[in-house]
């Protein structure tokens, strides 16, 4: 018998006032109450098999990237590393300890030795927990959480530090920066307790709150449907401007790409609760499909123009298949900054 998981749910208070579309929240809550309750089957999100597949993914990632994934990668910073990088002219104030005396003896030129500094990569996974991630079932939200866990496990396996932020119209909750594979179980428990909440998706609010926390720069993976009424650009621009390396995973359901609606219907927005009465015809359906594909095209085009990894996927695929496809499609070297 399907049961909800309210006991594990982390309470997320709804903000007061008005939502992003200006609809009074009292009205919005009333409409949300009319929506069907989100009761999901009690299938474990992270079971033993999931962990086995995570291990397999970790091995595959090493084979694919041959040590270039996340940690164990060199930064462009030179510093106190042990591996020689290059020389530069000595300048006043430089540390004499790094002068290459052998070279000075041979050529009489003061050159300073530079070493490549190695540091672990900080991976921030920003997980969309807005209501739009779970419309009629939790398939998309489950896939997003499984993807989060898998990406975190791969990063932890490479000794990178991982933090996860749940967001909707802002940061709702976060799993603090952590390191080591043994922390994956805690992360999975935290993910298991997550529940969709919030009224709207606001990437701008998310990134604002995220960058203000002053985290160290690193890889910021956004897992969302990107159904932000204000658009995805402000949020991603903010991440880029603050030196983070964004990576985008867009998830959508098959019904969103190709809706099976016809005739007079009442469309209820699960986030805002707004109800819109429409007469859906074949023509309007076709225009919808065109508009949706245009949205995905704009996201892809944006990411391509700024060198951002972008994965667009249907929520009906398995998380490991999606992750393997992501790995195989990565044909450029990992970020080295």
């Amino acid at each position: 018998m399907p049961i909800a998981r309210p006991s594990l749910a982390r309470k997320c208070e709804l903000p007061s006032g008005r939502n992003a579309t200006g609809t009074p929240l009292r009205y919005t809550r009333h409409l949300l109450a009319t929506l069907p309750p989100m009761i999901f089957p009690s299938v474990p999100l992270f079971d033993t098999q999931f962990l086995t597949r995570l291990e397999y993914l970790s091995l595959v990632s090493r084979k694919v990237f041959q040590g270039e994934l996340m940690a164990q990668r060199r930064t462009t910073q030179t510093g106190s590393g042990v591996e020689f990088a290059d020389h530069r002219q000595y300048a006043t104030g430089d540390d004499f300890r790094y002068l290459d005396w052998n070279l000075y003896a041979r050529h009489g030129e003061l050159l300073l030795k530079r070493f490549q500094e190695e540091e672990d990569l900080h991976v921030y996974i920003l997980l969309d927990c807005s209501r739009s991630m779970s419309v009629s079932d939790s398939v998309r939200f489950d896939l997003a959480r499984q993807l989060t866990a898998a990406l975190a496990y791969v990063a932890m396996s490479d000794l990178d530090r991982v933090a996860v932020f749940a967001f909707a119209d802002g940061v709702l909750d976060h799993f603090p920066l952590t390191r080591g594979k043994e922390r994956i179980l805690s992360l999975m428990e935290w993910l298991d307790n997550l529940q969709v909440s919030g009224e709207t998706t606001s990437l701008k609010n998310l990134t604002n709150q995220f960058v203000q926390r002053g985290h160290r720069k690193g890889l910021a993976i956004l897992i969302s449907d990107f159904y932000d009424p204000q658009g995805f650009r402000p949020g991603l621009d903010l991440l880029r401007h603050h030196g983070y390396e964004p990576s985008v995973i867009q998830l959508h359901s098959p019904e969103e790409a190709n809706p099976k609606l016809l005739g007079d219907v009442e469309l209820a927005d699960v986030e805002t609760g707004e109800v819109r009465k429409l007469t859906v015809t074949e023509n309007s359906l076709q225009r919808y499909r065109d508009r949706f594909n245009q949205f995905l095209g704009e996201l892809t085009s944006y990411c391509t123009s700024y060198g951002i990894d972008c994965t667009i996927s249907n929520s009906s695929v398995a998380f490991d298949d999606l992750l393997l496809a992501m790995m195989r499609s990565t044909d450029r070297p990992a970020p080295t900054r």
């Binding site: 991630m133 449907d225 009424p229 219907v265 469309l267 986030e271 819109r276």
Partner: peptide, 13 residues
């Protein structure tokens, strides 16, 4: 009318 919950109505709008 038949009520259909959707992730977003922004495309329909």
């Amino acid at each position: 009318l038949r009520r259909v919950p959707v992730a977003t109505t922004m495309f329909w709008e």
